[in-house]
């Protein structure tokens, strides 16, 4: 009778000693400069490779946006180079071209043809009801959020995460407050990011109807903007956000009747735009307006 009981007491004692030791060791370990424990749990377990995973989860979110109808690395993914969930926010420079429906191509053989009956087979977007096509279910876009959150946790420097998350929270799920929190967190991780400032401005303007605040934020974005030297895509993406910011500013100025300022902003946007025709039309329209009603 006494044998096992002694053993149990001994075990408990050992546990207590372990806990007691753990406390001072823990503080030492955290203080040690080489420690990974200073980061979050992902930083500890994955180290630098977490960026790869982050990208994987971002793609996963886009695949959810399509209810699983998504190309693999073996398919023709030219129409999916930029995630559609990001493209649809209007805040990301799209590089997509080609067919969205037929990325798998025609069936290669009977096995392939037969297998396609067991896969999602239509191009749909969750904010438009997803696979069931039920438009009242446009809040279904919520399903992409867990993956975006995970991706953002893994790679806080990827600004697209915050923009996409905030946009859908605001647009389809009517949660501007949460969206704002997401953007502010993004801004905290990426101080002065033009992309996030752009989206934050839209949130202030469209959800809070606080134009002044929106303009301030956009101005901050324009102020932070620098031309970059890099690949064509990088330059294009950088110019795209400048164009967006400048266009927004132009629109705001036009709204309050500052035609001259508006035209100036549109001119700036046009200078970096890949599709300047629309902006040119806008400018001409304003100029006509301006000539009819000249400024006093």
């Amino acid at each position: 009778m006494s044998g096992p009981r002694i053993q149990i007491w001994f075990l408990i004692l050992l546990l207590v000693v372990c806990f007691a030791l753990a406390c001072p060791l823990q503080s030492r370990f955290v203080a040690w400069p080489g420690s990974r424990a200073n980061g979050d749990v992902f930083a500890i377990t994955l180290g630098e490779s977490r960026k790869l995973f982050a990208n994987e989860f971002f793609v996963k979110a886009d695949s959810y946006y399509h209810s699983g109808f998504y190309p693999t690395i073996f398919d023709d993914n030219r129409a999916f180079k930029t995630a559609h969930m990001a493209e649809d926010t209007g805040a990301v420079n799209s590089q997509n071209h080609g067919e969205e429906e037929s990325f798998m191509g025609p069936p290669r053989n009977w096995i392939d043809a037969f297998g396609r009956h067991f896969m999602p087979d239509r191009h749909t977007h969750l904010d438009e009801g997803g696979a069931s096509g039920d438009l009242s279910g446009s809040e279904g876009v919520r399903e992409i959020l867990p993956w975006l959150k995970l991706s953002a946790d893994l790679d806080p420097q990827n600004v697209q995460n915050y923009i996409v998350t905030a946009y859908w929270l605001r647009q389809r799920m009517h949660q501007p407050k949460t969206a704002q929190e997401v953007l502010l967190e993004g801004l905290h991780e990426n101080p002065g990011s033009c992309d996030i400032l752009f989206e934050l401005g839209r949130l202030y303007a469209e959800s809070d109807h606080d134009t002044n605040r929106a303009v301030n934020v956009w101005m901050a974005g324009l102020h932070n903007w620098r031309p970059v030297k890099g690949t064509e895509d990088e330059v294009a993406a950088n110019n795209f956000i400048y164009e967006k910011l400048a266009t927004q500013m132009g629109a705001e100025q036009a709204d309050v009747g500052n035609w001259q300022a508006a035209i100036q902003w549109f001119e700036k946007a046009k200078a970096v735009s890949k599709t300047p025709d629309g902006l040119q039309q806008m400018i001409e329209l304003l100029q006509q307006h301006h000539s009819i009603k000249p400024k006093p």
Partner: peptide, 22 residues
């Protein structure tokens, strides 16, 4: 081809039933 039998995507994303013939 075991992947025929893996229809998890259809369940997760509420796709309609697979044609009973197939």
């Amino acid at each position: 081809h075991l992947e025929f039998f893996d229809v998890r995507d259809l369940i997760i994303h509420d796709w309609p039933l697979i044609h009973w013939g197939y």
